[in-house]
Design a protein around this nucleic acid. Structure first.
Length: 650
DNA sequence: GTAGGGTTAG
């Protein structure tokens, strides 16, 4: 059937505006049919060009390509359109080969083809090609073009050749760059990316006019190097902020550990009437995930649901991660199941989720499912399955997966994989194998890896190997307090007091600061943080009373304080009651006085939970009939009716 | 043609 389309006398112009405004590929194909019948579909026709551009806009590269291929000798406009379409859809290789086709024909690429070819070269990291393209553009004086010049600078920035970017910028005549804010922005962004915020600031101060993007780049530069206060100050002073500015803050604060402020920024943005996009939502969810703040996370989720965000891509993955890291692995799994698109990152996230919750079977099942879904495993997903084995003591399975990664998938292990393996052997008490594994590694172990071995030695009370591990740990990372604390604890529990004392003195001499243990709990939208021995909470008295009561009742049930753990916290060791001061116990006591019966209790702790707290939590879960979900810095512990989901393996 | 995002060992 011929579609009935109204055709006024100026039919070509009308067709073009019809093509540009259509929102469906089906409709576009109908128009194409009509154009064919009207004999308006030929190489030099602007209608043909518009059809290709619109296919790209409607995300159908196959149709765009099939149109392009109908022309034995395409016009320069058609080449421009297809090169741009391919580059816009990240099909950089294809974009470049079409550029080459154009270049080698009698046609010369013009001011529209070059920018997209430059972008493609940048994204495929082809430095040599980048230089040739630059030279080719210069040869025909196109490098002086507004578009081309900006693209050149941006290309060098993307290729991490900031020096080249600045050179192009500096060689741009004054009159040329005066009215090109974009050119300035691109350079400023390049400088910020390479860490040279000072120089970026100098350019920022003298540029003829600024846009929001200029500010955003600078703020991002400061956040990237951890200068949070400076970033916030600049941000607050911005004459205008857009969704990118806010997202930059949310993501940057979160990456630097200030998740509370990140979520606050998100809320402020919404209060100010700025609509979030998927980048913002994903960043906000990530902040909630890092904090373990379920209530905030649910709020962001509700916002996403109410504003038509699809739980796919980054938002979906961030949701899965948020629920998983907030203790709701079943909920994470539901979200995961409902997703339509899952990439390797999504799978990694859910596998890691099952891993940290101690469900190695579910983790491995997901890994199988992922392979069945033809998603190619990468090093990250292997790390996640190895973690699953580590947290559940599945040593043989872990070794098998590690070998499979290397030999079946030809993926070279990274230091993270090696550490995971040492942890796998170490936690299982197979210390000799762990050490052997380290010796067989093709690379020199780093301090993290020695740290993993050390933890294993401590858990399995092998002082001799612990000394070796600590020695290397401190050799590679003398400023790290953990090494000293560990070693001192080791000697203490082996009753080698003199040596323990010596380590502590060394530590004090080098003025190494110990990172304090804290626990965090969210009660009805309010967050409460406790430090070890904390008495600053307004309800501190009640908390300590409830804790005493808990310990008494627990003792009736056979709980015995584990004295070894007192030594865990060396600064507290002289206090008799220091065991009762661990921050997770305070958080638990607070939860008991501030939540209702049977309500589940979720605690987040920044260090690994000690044996004593772990056993008290178990007893508490049965005494009060509560489910206690504790996230420590490694994994989750679900305490219920006197047992822990980790099976006391952690 | 510019700015922002989801996973990752101890």
């Amino acid at each position: 059937m011929t579609p009935t389309l109204p055709l006024p006398p100026n039919r070509e112009a009308h067709l073009i505006s019809l093509i540009q405004s259509t929102q469906s590929l089906h409709h576009l194909k109908q128009i194409h049919g009509l154009v064919l019948r009207l004999h308006l579909f030929f190489s030099g026709s602007p209608i043909a060009t518009q059809l290709i551009s619109s296919s790209s806009r409607l995300r159908s590269i196959p149709f765009a390509l099939s149109l392009f291929r109908l022309f034995p000798s395409p016009s320069p406009f058609l080449f421009d359109a297809i090169i741009r379409a391919l580059s816009d859809h990240s099909l950089f290789d294809s974009s470049l080969s079409h550029f080459a086709l154009m270049f080698n024909s009698s046609l010369r690429p013009g001011r529209l083809a070059f920018p997209f070819a430059l972008k493609s070269a940048a994204f495929t990291s082809r430095t040599a090609l980048a230089f040739s393209l630059h030279a080719a553009a210069a040869k025909v004086a196109l490098d002086l073009d507004f578009f081309v010049r900006t693209s050149l600078v941006d290309m060098y920035v993307k290729l991490d050749l900031v020096v080249c970017a600045i050179k192009v910028f500096d060689e741009t005549p004054e009159w040329h760059r005066a009215g090109n804010v974009l050119l300035w922005n691109v350079v400023i962004n390049g400088l910020c990316r390479s860490g040279d915020v000072e120089r970026a600031r100098e350019l920022f101060d003298v540029m003829p006019e600024r846009s929001v993007a200029s500010w955003n780049s600078l703020v991002q530069g400061l956040l990237k190097r951890g200068d949070l206060d400076a970033a916030v100050e600049l941000f607050e002073g911005m004459p205008e902020r857009n969704v990118v500015s806010w997202t930059t803050m949310v993501a940057g604060l979160s990456r630097n550990g200030d998740n509370q402020r990140a979520v606050w920024m998100f809320d402020r943005m919404l209060e100010g009437g700025v609509r979030a996009n998927e980048f913002t939502v994903a960043s906000a969810l990530s902040a909630c995930s890092r904090m373990g703040a379920l209530e905030s996370g649910v709020r962001v989720h509700e916002y996403a649901l109410g504003n038509g965000f699809r739980a796919d891509g980054a938002v979906g993955t961030a949701l899965v991660d948020m629920y998983s890291k907030c203790g709701k692995i079943e909920r994470a799994s539901e979200v995961f199941d409902q997703m339509e698109q899952r990439d390797v990152l999504t799978w990694t996230t859910i596998i890691m989720g099952w891993a940290i919750h101690g469900h190695w079977r579910r983790a491995l099942q997901c890994f199988e499912d992922m392979r069945c879904a033809c998603v190619k495993p990468d090093d990250g997903v292997f790390l996640a399955v190895l973690m699953a084995c580590t947290h559940s003591g599945k040593v043989e399975k872990g070794v098998e997966l590690f070998d499979s990664m290397r030999f079946d998938y030809k993926i070279e292990p990274t230091m993270k994989h090696y550490t995971c393996m040492v942890d796998l052997f170490g936690r299982a008490g197979r210390l000799e194998e762990a050490l052997e594994f380290m010796k067989a590694m093709p690379v020199e172990p780093d301090f993290v890896l020695w740290g993993a071995l050390f933890s294993a030695c401590r858990a399995h009370k092998n002082v001799k190997m612990a000394e070796l591990a600590a020695e290397n740990f401190l050799r590679l990372k003398p400023s790290h307090s953990g090494g000293y604390v560990f070693l001192s604890n080791m000697y203490s529990s082996a009753k080698r007091w003199d040596e323990a004392e010596k380590v502590r003195t060394t530590m004090k001499d080098q003025s190494v600061e110990k990172s304090p243990g804290w626990s965090y709990i969210e009660v009805r939208g309010q967050t409460h943080r406790f430090l070890a021995g904390d008495q600053s909470h307004p309800r501190s008295n009640e908390i300590h009373n409830r804790l005493e009561e808990l310990v008494l009742r627990a003792k009736e049930q056979g709980y015995e304080p584990d004295i070894d753990c007192v030594l865990h916290d060396i600064e507290e060791e002289d206090k008799e009651d220091s065991l009762e001061c661990h921050s997770e116990k305070l958080a638990l006591a607070f939860a008991l006085i501030s939540t209702v019966d049977r309500e589940e209790i979720r605690i987040v702790k920044n260090l690994r939970v000690c044996v004593d707290c772990h056993s008290l939590m178990k007893v508490a879960s049965s005494i009060y009939g509560r489910e206690i979900i504790l996230r420590d810095n490694k994994r989750f512990h679900h305490f219920k009716t006197g047992v822990c989901s980790c099976g006391d393996y952690w």
